[in-house]
Design a protein around this nucleic acid. Structure first.
Length: 734
DNA sequence: CCGATGAAACACTGG
DNA sequence: GTTTCATCGG
């Protein structure tokens, strides 16, 4: 029984649990992944279950890959036939196999967020509605929410006029998706559920195959996913789920931690196992995290225990910077200090924040200090214009019906197909009840003999040329490996000449395209369709670099499942964490708290909590107050050091501010790139200054305006004054 | 029909 | 601070 050897009693109970429903509630760092991988190995080795009969579902591709390799290591052989993947990948796979039951073909494409929004806009336009009244993002949220709760257009409640309208947009949106032979993320789940729900034979064939179903991060499943799992496990009822209510952070995506309760109700004969032994953090870190999370109601009480040999550990450090520049400077300073004294290596650090926008100042601070960093987030790359262009072309090759991709690239690079030609194309397509892509292909094939030639107007020849190019690629897609196809497309498009215009920006854009080309080599033998599917389903977590010798910058959401020796959590201000949009809803507030908890429990040894008394949001400085979550950390767990006290209230007249960035070479503006001579501010918020007639005061803000520096000063004698630096004759005291 | 320019709107988390 | 949309001159 060597598979059970290196497990603690609780883990062993989970891994060797008898068949049937099993619920494992696993605290952070308690060996959740370990239990799952050992369970799979146990089923195969000890229970004699064929890998072919096992399905394991995770939330990210990274988790899947990791699980796969760990299982293979445990068994010391490769496993064939095991289904291991994300919910979305699993659904895509099922849907491509069951074409005959579905209203789309197996060459369907998956629409990303931007595609979805532009299709919603189209639906709103089609229905002659006002975009101001029905904001595409909010409509999209409503539709997504409906899909996550198994509501199809016909079921969408028309309880208010607005809902009735949204229901109509929803219906139109689905029509447009089908016309493009496309699915959005939610459709992947919903169509699969529907397929299994409406076709008992199909359901049985999958449910019979999957003797064992295992699920990771169960607390983040939504209703569709829950019902999907029920169907998949409906024959054997061997469903093994692992999760932690306290780490449920995807409510806004429909995740419902109450699925844990639902599970206990639906599977009465199930076993429930708690994992409380923590292998990651010091007891101090755990105590702080526990104090934060215990304020939440409706949770299974857990007592997190650290390993005795980890000791008590160091206290948490709280630092309050004067502003968000100081916040970033503090993080960088600390990292430099700790690494130069050899107490830590660069790769030991993670800096976590609530919103992606917060990464900018941090990046600038790292660049200024000449420190490397790793930024987690797929959007950085896949959101770029040049990347989206080329992906759109690839998707058109795979699926010419894709209207969104067509609209994106039909005139990129410019080829004389303007609005008028595009409208003509649309009209011709609609009249013939075919897709615009088909019209293009027909034009290229039949030329002037095509019935469409006369309909599309003057640009017919240009459209035919474009169609011919597309048809050519489609023919080559069968014969050529993906990298060769991609190269041909770039060449025929003249994309390099188009994008690499000699500027620095053009150069970097072209480098991105080259990077995408490099990616195609990894799909040389899997082909276009696998490539596109993976592009659509990459998660931010999939971009976490392995073993980087650099600090990692990431959102608290992206941090789930990871661990670092030293963790900085920045932006601990009310309005940032907890986020503004959550302040008025108790459920959302509970989730913000869990998010903070997730961040804290990523740390092995040290935690730095950082906030800023002022934050530059929307271009102007605003005072902020400390996050209410800080109040829940017992004072005896916090370090007095760091130069700052707790309970500190930000006031602009306060002189107790200190930005911790005295080592820096200059104000942030000095780092701005560009050769144009830029006037640099001499004064900075937080400085004490003296004026000939008004005496001493504190600089509140300063910016360059009209070739002069404008300084806002709060004088001890006369209060607030706005001054022009060239005239005021201010003297810096400190 | 194209590209440049500037105003306006906009930012929470992400498969 | 960034992106998107609208407008205008060529």
């Amino acid at each position: 029984m060597d598979i059970l050897n290196d497990l603690n009693p609780q883990q062993r109970a989970a891994v060797a649990a008898r068949p049937g429903p099993v619920l494992v509630l696993a605290g952070p760092g308690s060996g959740k992944t370990r239990v799952l991988t050992h369970r799979i190995a146990y089923l195969i080795n000890q229970m004699g279950v064929s890998p072919y009969h096992i399905l394991a579902v995770t939330f990210t591709n990274k988790a899947s890959r990791e699980m796969q390799s760990r299982v293979e290591k445990l068994l010391d052989r490769s496993v064939q036939g095991l289904w291991l993947g994300t919910f979305h990948a699993m659904c895509a796979r099922i849907l491509r196999r069951e074409q005959q039951f579905l209203p789309f073909t197996s060459s369907f494409v998956i629409f990303d967020d931007d595609d979805q929004t532009s299709l919603i806009k189209r639906a709103i336009k089609d229905l002659n509605l006002d975009e101001k009244l029905y904001k595409p993002t909010s409509v999209h949220a409503a539709i997504s929410n409906a899909k996550n709760n198994l509501l199809q257009p016909k079921d969408y409640p028309a309880s208010t006029y607005r809902d009735e309208v949204i229901g109509r947009i929803y219906r139109r949106y689905q029509e447009l998706l089908l016309a493009s032979n496309a699915l959005d993320f939610d459709d992947l789940l919903l169509y699969t559920w529907k397929l299994l729900d409406e076709n008992p034979a199909v359901r049985e064939s999958y449910a019979r195959r999957f003797e064992h179903v295992l699920v990771d991060e169960f607390q983040d499943t939504n209703l569709v996913q829950y019902e999907l799992l029920r169907h998949l496990a409906s024959v054997h009822q061997n469903i093994f789920v692992v999760g932690d209510e306290d780490q449920s952070i995807y409510r806004w995506r429909g995740a419902d931690y109450r699925n844990v309760l639902r599970f206990e109700e639906d599977y009465r004969n199930g076993q429930k196992i708690l994992l409380e032994q923590n292998y990651r953090s010091t007891q101090t870190v755990l105590d702080a995290a526990q104090a934060v999370i215990e304020r939440n109601r409706h949770r299974t009480p857990k007592k997190l225990r650290s390993m005795p040999e980890r000791g008590t550990g160091e206290k948490l450090t709280l630092f309050e910077a004067v502003d968000d520049y100081g916040e970033a400077a503090y993080v960088v300073d600390m990292i430099q200090q700790l690494t130069s004294s050899r107490r830590a290596r660069l790769g030991d650090f993670a800096v976590m924040y609530r919103t992606n926008a917060q990464s900018r100042l941090l990046e600038e601070a790292f660049l200024r200090a000449g420190l490397p960093y790793r930024l987690v987030g797929a959007q950085r790359f896949y959101g770029r214009r040049e990347i989206k262009d080329m992906i759109a072309y690839l998707r058109l090759v795979q699926n010419p019906a894709d209207e969104v991709s067509l609209a994106r690239v039909i005139n990129v690079p410019p080829r004389g197909i303007g609005d008028k030609a595009q409208v003509g194309l649309q009209v011709a397509a609609r009249q013939a009840q075919v897709s615009a892509g088909q019209v293009l292909l027909a034009l290229s094939e039949e030329g002037k003999d095509s019935p469409y030639w006369g309909q599309v107007g003057r640009a017919a020849a240009l459209l035919a040329d474009f169609g011919a190019m597309l048809a050519g690629w489609r023919a080559q897609a069968q014969a050529l490996p993906l990298p060769a196809l991609f190269g041909r497309m770039l060449e025929e498009l003249g994309y390099e000449e188009y994008i690499n215009d000699g500027t620095e920006e053009g150069q970097s854009r072209w480098e991105n395209v080259e990077e995408l080309r490099r990616l195609t080599y990894e799909y040389e033998d899997r082909g276009l369709s696998a490539f596109l599917e993976n592009l659509a389903l990459v998660s931010d977590q999939d971009t976490v670099p392995e073993e980087a010798e650099a600090p990692t910058l990431l959102t608290l959401h992206a941090a789930k499942g990871l661990e670092f020796p030293v963790v900085f959590i920045v932006g601990l201000d009310d309005g940032t964490l907890p986020h503004n949009r959550s302040l008025d809803d108790p459920e959302e507030m509970a989730e913000e708290r869990r998010l903070f908890y997730v961040g804290l429990t990523r740390a092995k040894n040290r935690v730095y909590l950082v906030r800023a008394a002022q934050r530059n949001t929307f271009g102007s400085f605003q005072d902020s107050i400390p996050s209410r979550f800080l109040d829940d950390i017992p004072v005896n767990l916090l370090q007095e050091g760091g130069g700052l006290r707790r309970g500190f209230q930000a006031r602009r007249s306060s002189t107790a501010l200190w930005d911790g960035g005295s080592q820096r070479s200059g104000p942030p503006q000095a780092a701005r790139a560009g050769s144009a001579p830029i006037l640099q501010p001499r004064y900075r918020a937080g400085m004490r200054v003296s004026h000939p007639s008004w005496g001493e005061g504190l600089v509140v803000d300063s910016r360059i305006q009209d070739d002069d520096e404008r300084v806002d000063v709060f004088f001890d004698s006369v209060g607030f004054k706005r001054l022009a630096a060239s005239l005021a004759n201010l003297e810096i005291i400190k």
